[in-house]
Write a protein that binds this DNA or RNA. Structure first.
Lengths: 132, 132
DNA sequence: CCATAAACTTGCAAAATGCAAGTTACTTGA
DNA sequence: TCAAGTAACTTGCATTTTGCAAGTTTATGG
């Protein structure tokens, strides 16, 4: 029997997915790669302005996870173009689910690069919170 | 025109979704609520063992975000039963996308509560991408 | 009266994040 | 030749978030 703990937290597919892409930045990098960006500079220039040290670390982690591959597009100095593997491209479905949820439930949000004509969530009137 | 900055990072639906649920724990809480758990204790007992201070903080944030509502199920001491709002239930699609991705791409993961018979990702034998 | 329990809260230590500045290895224009 | 620019990182450090353990509050059962 295998006694070694195979998973960090549990065998749940959601938990293990979150161990890879469960933070504020990783899926934004994947989003940009899906949109055709592929150099460090292009990724760093996105509207959310990811800190450069975080970007570098995330690219390493995504590469280690088999989601991204970096292929040199020039020698001297060597520069890498980052692209998604099939595993990475498959995250498109997750991104799509987030887009749909965000557009329906977070007023004003939209899919970048589609202008204001895109359907967004209506601003709710009131919302009350329980008193302490 | 509105001059106040409406979004923390950008107007992207993905970025704003991640500002709410983009961490290692939040979607696991939502997963459990979708699976019918609703007390603090039930949520704390999940296999991932969320630290109790994190659980308390996440429940507050989810309530503030309109994803969860806490209704008292007893007074003295007052205890809350947490349930998902429609906005919260709608995250089921995101969870489902994560489940599909995890099962296909993270070997050994599965949907909790479905036993080992559930389809999981094959340990990468040499498998070529099948024709669709 | 005492042990147990659920639901939080508090106190840190450790890790992750974010900002700015520095470094490396070139390319380009004067 | 030499200064300036540029892409891609790296480093330092202050702030924030996480995680573990222990404590608190209100109540119940023996």
């Amino acid at each position: 029997m295998s006694s070694a703990k195979p998973f960090a937290r549990s065998a749940c597919a959601v938990a293990n997915s979150l161990d890879i892409v469960g933070d504020k930045w990783t899926l934004l990098v994947v989003r940009d790669l899906l949109h055709g960006k592929n150099t460090y500079g292009e990724l760093a220039d996105s509207p959310e302005h990811i800190p450069t040290n975080i970007l570098a670390e995330r690219l390493k982690r995504l590469e280690a996870a088999g989601i991204v591959v970096g292929t040199p597009y020039q020698e001297r100095p060597v520069r890498y173009a980052y692209t998604l593997t099939p595993k990475g491209k498959a995250l498109g479905d997750v991104l799509l689910a987030f887009v749909r949820w965000g557009k329906q439930h977070i007023p004003g949000t939209m899919v970048m690069g589609q202008g204001t004509a895109a359907k967004t969530a209506a601003t709710p009137r009131t919302r009350k919170t329980r008193a302490k």
